[in-house]
Write a protein that binds this DNA or RNA. Structure first.
Length: 655
RNA sequence: GCGCCCGUAGCUCAACGGAUAGAGCAUCCGCCUUCUAAGCGGAUGGUUACAGGUUCGAGUCCUGUCGGGCGCGCCA
């Protein structure tokens, strides 16, 4: 159950029943302080202002309704509802309600109390989107990690997510490469070669205007190559080149002859295959980050190539197109550039080449028309916000983006260098993603070997991988995505405080308690949220056999007791309320696309557990208390595991 | 010049217009003969850049100033 929603609704009803207009929000939030109960409703004060009545008196009338039974009553879940301060309504949940809800969550291993959305949507999540021809670097981290989290959270709430990795496989950087292989003999075998080639091509592009022009023309030619008719093969071209050198280009230009782009396309395809493979290994769990993206999700710029002329034609039909300085542009009145001049949205260059504006428009049409998206999320650097504002506006004006389809730019801050300036991607000096991950694992391995030298090396390696990658992801996800951040090894790989290892540690501790409880009763606790494999699958399986073995009676007895969580101690209560807030947390992450809400929640939850851990012995308690606390442990572990899983972070059984 | 974002503890960051602005790191003091000390408890640390305004109530909304980042016609 989404507690906050339930309270919001009921308080709203009660407000209406007390004579408050229905458009006054209840404004329910978790209480700022323990003395204010579990939740506070702040809406009455504003309503009283509107009605020009005494806010406290009005709040009392609302509370009166809340105390009654029926649709505007909270008697089933609250043990105390009171007016405080100038007109706050403070709500304290009853222990009985909490116990009931915890039992329900415990019985719902998959969702842990979260309910599917009433209106499931098809959500396209556009994320990662590296430029091919270059190896992925730390600048690609945020989009990949944040997008991946959203791609996990939304399906958890019953939405259908279609991942789209809009890789850069078509733009000017490819023109550069293809123009470059026209001047040099070059056939890269791996990404290393390709990257060297790219660096050389880039340097030539930046320093040689003629080459730059040729590269741009190459893009335009490539994009419109189907329209051309005269071709020669690249082999022929090379042969001719050897024979005639300087004369050749003039000759070709004079007669409008191009290289056979089918061959060029083969080169292009080879480059893509090489770089894409490397990207996929960065995405893979085995070698890299462990994100959901796979080759099926790759849908790069080139995918839309055939549709680009249509996009421009349709814009023309819609009367949106204007030619300006030889380029095809859309001018919308709300966008102004320098000196108040209208700001163009250029869809076709004067050399007839298309741009990412065109590609993005084609992508919107595809996502709306073919993928049937109800919501489209673009997890892209904040610096592109103007582009997306224009894109959505133009797409709307052209009828590509219906009003009921939400397109959102999920902007994130720039990765800054230690000098406070943005990391430069073009002139080198970047940290490769694979190197970052390796370093993370090494640091984690050092630490785990220090803390737990008795564990076998293989296990320490596994732990290091999970902890290291988790730390990298968590460092990013726990931060408000809209702010810039300075890249720092120490910060990113920190393993203390509000970090993934803290959460993983909390989890491991709980599992350790459960393990010990299981041993003493001849039963391993039921594996929860079981679809996520852990490094200790083997161990769990061994104990799992025990459960079906000779100790069946004990196991059954434990299972019977398991549902009965009894809340008596304050620390138990605090933990219980936190657990019940899992559904509403996930909901707000999905609504606002803010993974840091989930991190903050998990940190609170872990904190609540630590408090419980310190003050409420589990294994030493007896009878029903022991069973209750054990169940509370299981549930906490399940929520932590699921929460981390939604962040894309794995748990381990020991660390 | 115009536009967007930002300015909160020494550092890194939180805080649907709500009550006495919170964490982590760092510093200092305690806690391993009791379920993992990657932990827990406590202390120190703030005129939320500045000045006005809106209102029952402002870190949050509005205006201005200062400071920083980014963007603004054929790159993505």
């Amino acid at each position: 159950m989404n507690l906050r929603n339930r309270l919001e609704k009921t308080v709203c009803n009660a407000m209406v029943a007390a004579g408050i207009p229905a458009d006054c929000p209840a404004i329910v939030a978790p209480s700022a302080k323990a003395e204010f109960g579990d939740y506070q409703a702040n809406g009455v004060m504003a309503a009283a202002k509107k009605l020009k009545t005494n806010p406290r008196k009005l709040a009392e009338q609302v509370v009166e309704r809340l105390m009654g039974a029926g649709p505007d009553g909270l008697t089933d879940l609250a043990e105390k509802i009171e007016v405080a301060g100038p007109g706050f309504i403070n709500i304290t949940l009853s222990g009985a309600f909490a116990e009931k809800q915890l039992a329900a969550a415990a019985g719902d291993k998959e969702k842990l109390g979260a309910q599917p959305a009433q209106t499931p949507q098809t959500v396209v999540v556009d994320y990662s989107a590296p430029n091919l021809a270059k190896e992925m670097h730390v600048g690609h981290l945020r989009s990949t990690i944040i997008g991946d989290c959203l791609a996990r959270v939304l399906p958890f709430l019953g939405h259908k997510v279609i991942r789209q990795n809009h890789v850069g496989d078509w733009g000017t950087q490819y023109g550069m490469l293809l123009a470059y292989i026209g001047t040099e003999e070059a056939s890269p075998k791996d990404l290393e070669d390709l990257e060297q080639l790219y660096i050389k091509a880039r340097a030539k592009f930046d320093s040689d205007p003629k080459f730059a022009k040729r590269a741009r023309r190459k893009v335009a030619e490539l994009q419109t190559w189907d329209e051309k008719s005269k071709h020669i093969s690249i082999r022929t071209w090379r042969w001719l080149k050897r024979c005639f050198k300087k004369l050749l280009r003039k000759f070709m230009r004079l007669f409008g002859i191009n290289i056979d782009y089918q061959n060029i396309k083969e080169f292009w395809g080879m480059y893509n295959a090489i770089s894409l493979e490397k990207c996929l290994s960065v995405y893979s769990e085995k070698e890299g980050l462990g994100v959901l993206l796979n080759s099926d999700d790759t849908c790069g710029e080139s995918f839309y190539n055939g549709d680009l002329p249509n996009v421009v034609a349709d814009l023309r039909k819609a009367g949106l197109l204007t030619e300006s300085q030889g380029a095809q542009c859309v001018f919308l009145p709300q966008f102004k550039g320098k000196d108040g001049e209208p700001l163009p949205f250029i869809v076709r260059k004067s050399d007839e080449g298309f741009l990412y504006a065109t590609t993005d428009l084609a992508a919107i049409r595809y996502r709306v028309g073919t993928l049937h998206a109800g919501r489209i999320l673009y997890v892209v650097d904040a610096r592109q916000s103007l582009h997306f504002k224009q894109l959505f506006a133009v797409a709307g004006a052209a009828g590509f983006l219906p009003e009921d389809v939400r397109a959102e730019h999920i902007a994130f801050g720039t990765m800054m260098g230690p000098d406070g300036k943005p990391f430069k991607t073009r002139t080198g000096g970047t940290v490769k993603l694979m190197e970052l991950l390796k370093e993370a694992e090494e640091r984690a391995f050092k630490l785990v070997s220090e803390k737990n030298p008795d564990l076998p090396e293989d296990e320490r390696k596994d732990i290091a991988k999970t902890v290291g990658i988790g730390a990298v992801k968590y460092a990013d996800l726990s931060q408000n995505r809209t702010s810039d951040y300075v890249f720092s090894w120490d910060k990113m790989l920190s393993l203390e405080g509000n970090t993934a290892p803290y959460m993983q540690y909390a989890y491991a501790r709980i599992r350790s308690i459960e393990g010990k409880a299981g041993l003493s009763e001849g039963k391993m606790p039921s594996p929860h949220a079981g679809e996520t494999p852990t490094t200790h699958l083997k161990q769990t399986a061994v104990h799992g056999q025990d459960a079906h073995g000779t100790h069946g009676r004990d196991a059954r007895a434990t299972a019977e007791k398991a549902g009965a969580i009894r809340i008596t101690e304050p620390a138990e209560r605090a933990l219980a309320v936190k657990i019940l807030q899992f559904p509403e947390t996930i909901q707000s992450v999905a609504d606002d696309c803010m993974p840091n809400y989930l991190c903050a929640y998990l940190f609170d939850l872990a904190g609540a557990f630590m408090g419980f851990y310190e003050s409420c012995p589990v294994l030493k308690a007896d009878g029903p208390t022991r069973a209750s606390r054990l169940e509370l442990c299981r549930l906490t572990a399940a929520v932590i595991q699921k929460g981390l899983d939604l962040l894309g972070i794995k748990t381990i059984e020991r660390m």
